[in-house]
Computed example of a mutant assay.
Amino acid sequence: MDVVERALAGALYADDDDALDMGASLLAAAPPDADAELVRRGEEFVRRAWERGWQPADVMRIVRRDLGERHGESAAALIVGEARRYGDDLPPRWRAQLDGLRDGGSERPPADRFSHAAAVLELYRLLVRLPVVEPVGPIPGTAPGTAVCPSSAPAVAEPRMLTRIRALLAKAEATGYPEEAEALTAKAQELMARHSIDAAMLAARAHRVDGPGACRIGVDAPYEAAKAILLDAVASANRCRAVWDGGFGFSTVVGFESDLESVELLYASLLVQATTAMTRAEASQRAGGRKRTKTFRQSFLLAYAHRIGDRLARAASQVAQDTTGGDLLPALGARDVAVADHAESLFPNTVRTRVRGAADAAGWRDGTAAADGARVCGTDHGGELPGH
């Protein structure tokens, strides 16, 4: 409709709020049948975001961070609506992300037409200005032959193994005993390493030419640098590469699908365990009469990530030594090279970013102790992160 076009043209491509208010006034005065056209245009903007490399979880993260929860509800409604055109023809990771949006409830009714129109235009302005990012998989409706990542569909060979890993990590998160958490998470990492080796062995025996893929994992504030180091440690221990984009609040993890699943599971669990342990350590500090601030929490998480990295790397290395024969080593080496090459093709201009060191000795000490209790780790990166 002409009124919708005029509102969008004036509001989306100008930087001042006056243009946005003028567009909202036009929409507020428009007849009710303009609403359907406005939604259609919003779904079109969502589709353009997919074509620029974004996925539903990425868009939701940016919208909630930059605009707020109410705008997030509107974005979720647009994303779910746009996805209906594909039916069941969705990449597996998209299906999981969309299921999460559908489970989150429905959009709240607007307070008044002007406020609703202004919020919609703010959302659309953000959507149309999303830049191109590195694609990490096919978009809905893409022909199979044009998929970006050759192994974008999750492996289905060992669902019971993944179920067992999830159960172990859930118990590790729930227990109040550090020794038990240590044993459970160590066992989970062992199963992940075996799962990776089994996948490589099956591919080698079947002479199957799989390729690595990629996924994005949110790295949210606060203390995002420490969290990105933790994710990098988990990725490295599971034969993957992680590249952090602090501006967009996510890391892209490159690896074979079975390893990507392990990274997602373990990182989420360790984040829960680290947060729980940090809260407990802070309570102990306060009980002793010592006030702790942001520097304590930052130091705690940096120490946790550092120590966890060491331990995970050792656990994965031990499994590899115990289970691999000489004939499998070339296959594992070839997969490592493929992951490195794919990461380089996606991110040819990465830089290493030095993170500000720990400034609180008690936080570092308590974080190290908590990591020893959790027994979950990756490689030591010397306080540096690959980013772009």
Rank of each mutant, 00 (worst) to 15 (best):
M1T: 09
A9G: 10
Y13R: 08
G23N: 09
A34R: 02
D35H: 07
D35E: 12
R41K: 12
R41T: 00
F45K: 01
R47K: 10
E51P: 08
R52T: 07
G53Y: 06
P56I: 03
R61K: 11
V63K: 08
R64D: 13
E73F: 11
A75D: 04
A75Q: 08
L78A: 05
G81W: 09
L90E: 05
W94V: 05
A96F: 02
A96W: 01
D99C: 02
R108W: 10
P135F: 00
P140E: 00
G145V: 01
S152K: 00
S152N: 08
A153C: 05
P154E: 13
V156A: 15
P159H: 11
M161G: 13
A167T: 13
L168C: 07
A174M: 04
T175L: 02
G176P: 09
E180Q: 14
Q189F: 15
M192D: 06
G211A: 02
A225S: 10
A225V: 08
I229P: 00
I229Y: 05
L231S: 05
V234Q: 10
V234I: 12
A235Y: 04
A235M: 08
S236W: 11
A237F: 12
A237V: 10
V243P: 04
W244V: 04
W244G: 03
V253T: 11
G255I: 10
S258R: 14
L260C: 10
E261A: 09
A274K: 13
T276H: 10
A287M: 13
G288C: 04
G289T: 04
K291P: 03
R297S: 13
H306L: 08
G309P: 11
R314T: 14
S317N: 14
V319Y: 00
T324N: 10
T324P: 09
A334I: 03
R335P: 08
R352E: 11
R354I: 09
G357W: 03
A359P: 00
D360C: 12
A362S: 14
V376P: 03
P386H: 02
